[in-house]
Design a binder for these strands. Structure first.
Length: 266
DNA sequence: CCTTAGTCCTGCATGC
DNA sequence: TGCATGCAGGACTAAG
């Protein structure tokens, strides 16, 4: 599932090559991936140029030179790719933006993702907490102090911290040596410090490895990431902890599978 | 406040 | 071999 490192990698592979390009045409193959559904996307996009593409949380935010903006959320299985126009589109390609000889294509088999029109006034920050890589330890402490939920659950809450998903929440908690069930407001100052550091370290490493490809994720050029090889707990239930050899456990928190080492995480 | 369960959806793994 | 079933989960909603 694309989380912060995957989404950031897509933006980094997309934007440098698309700066200023004009959208020549729009092919909407499934109208129900557009929100709100009344938006005439083609009418708003054709003839406009790309002023910016950036990431906010897990959103890919497109800015047009006329001041309008929209974002794409990839959900579970969404992909955004830059391909030559003559390449046959992958199955479940819902939206195509034709540029010069190339196209930006949005595909998403499971359709948990979508294209969200913001217009000139809508904000991509809506519903999102701060960026984890820009967060200071004190800010993290402030956020976590005011909730009693399990820390794992808090890390997944985009309105608290924007960009972590199931993989990086589990990996961050392992890096910090914190049990995922621990109530967020019970973390010691020391644990907060370890989490602040561990979370950023995990995200930066994942960025360096261009994200994690378990099945679906690819960057805009179709390349897989390789951080999945460095996962220390995620989807490693029953396998020995890389630090202490204790079997990694899998439990369910907030309906999400959660992986941790019972010895290293307390 | 919190949690759980259900919803959306398809592809893949499993089991008979 | 082929079918049915279960599971994965990001974000949201409803219910308890």
């Amino acid at each position: 599932m694309p989380e912060l490192p995957e989404v950031e990698t897509i933006v980094r592979t997309l934007w440098p090559r698309l700066a200023g390009r004009k959208i020549q045409g729009v092919s909407l193959r499934r109208a129900d991936v557009i929100f709100p559904d009344r938006v005439n996307l083609a009418g708003m996009l054709v003839g406009r140029s790309l002023a910016d593409i950036r990431r906010r949380g897990k959103k890919i935010v497109f800015a047009l030179t006329d001041g309008n903006r929209f974002y794409i959320h990839l959900g579970m299985t969404g992909r955004l790719s830059l391909q030559l126009a003559h390449t046959p589109p992958a199955p479940h390609t819902h939206l195509i933006l034709r540029l010069d000889g190339r196209e930006i294509r949005f595909s998403d088999p499971r359709r948990f993702g979508g294209v969200f029109w913001l217009g000139k006034n809508g904000s991509a920050d809506e519903g999102l907490g701060p960026e984890p890589l820009k967060m200071r330890r004190t800010q993290l402490a402030r956020l976590l102090r005011r909730t009693t939920r399990a820390i794992k659950s808090a890390l997944l809450d985009q309105s608290l911290i924007a960009g972590l998903g199931n993989i990086y929440a589990d990996e961050s908690l392992f890096a910090a040596g914190i049990h995922p069930s621990m109530p967020a407001n019970k973390l010691s100052a020391r644990q907060i410090a370890r989490l602040s550091r561990g979370m950023k370290q995990v995200l930066r490493r994942a960025l360096r490895h261009r994200g994690s490809t378990l099945r679906d994720y690819r960057d805009a050029d179709g390349n897989a990431g390789d951080f999945q090889k460095l996962h220390r707990v995620y989807r490693r239930a029953g396998m020995p902890c890389v630090v202490c050899k204790t079997a990694v456990r899998r439990i369910v928190i907030s309906g999400r599978s959660t992986h941790f080492c019972p010895k290293c995480q307390t």
